[in-house]
């Protein structure tokens, strides 16, 4: 006898509801590192107004955040700190790698920088640019929203 109804009708709807709730209450952690952090701050202020997407509540404590925007270059010295901050965030959590340096090391292919933050934490969205303008960051955030809406709830 089949125990699961075909199509997972009920669960799909729960998935959607949960994803919707998650995208509408995202709290980014303030993880400003370099130039990109300034653009991240600009995004939150009046001219670009990240509040339109319900994203302006930057949380100082990683315990209250579920999105980490890695804004800037990650040095070898900073890498363990970054990982610790990430580990302290409650699940489910997402990471946006903002800018060329965070994504690939950018133009600084040298001893001091981690060549891409994806070597330390799993990254969901890469935002290109050096630094990415607030519009690019917003596009990245909205893309993340779409990704969450399209995906399934796990963990």
């Amino acid at each position: 006898m089949a125990t699961t109804p075909p199509g997972n009708l009920l669960m799909t709807t729960v998935d959607k509801a949960a994803s919707w709730a998650r995208t509408r209450s995202m709290f980014p952690a303030t993880f400003g590192l370099a130039c990109c952090a300034i653009e991240m701050m600009v995004s939150g202020t009046s001219h670009y107004d990240l509040a339109r997407f319900g994203m302006e509540v930057f949380r100082a404590s990683p315990r209250q955040a579920d999105l980490m925007i890695v804004a800037g270059r990650v040095s070898q010295k900073m890498a363990p700190v970054l990982r610790q901050v990430y580990d302290q965030m409650p699940d489910p959590k997402w990471v946006i790698s903002m800018g060329a340096c965070a994504s690939t090391g950018g133009m600084f292919n040298n001893y001091a920088l981690v060549q891409g933050v994806d070597q330390i934490v799993p990254v969901d969205i890469y935002v290109p640019g050096c630094p990415p303008g607030p519009q690019s960051l917003m596009h990245g955030i909205l893309s993340l929203h779409d990704k969450i809406m399209a995906g399934e709830i796990r963990n």
Partner: peptide, 27 residues
Amino acid sequence: YLHTGMEKTAEVLTFGQGTTNVTRMDY
């Protein structure tokens, strides 16, 4: 914690490319 090694990178860039590097110091 933000040491980027720019002074080392400057040694592999030409004089003309150098401004791309230094402009990212004090952003």
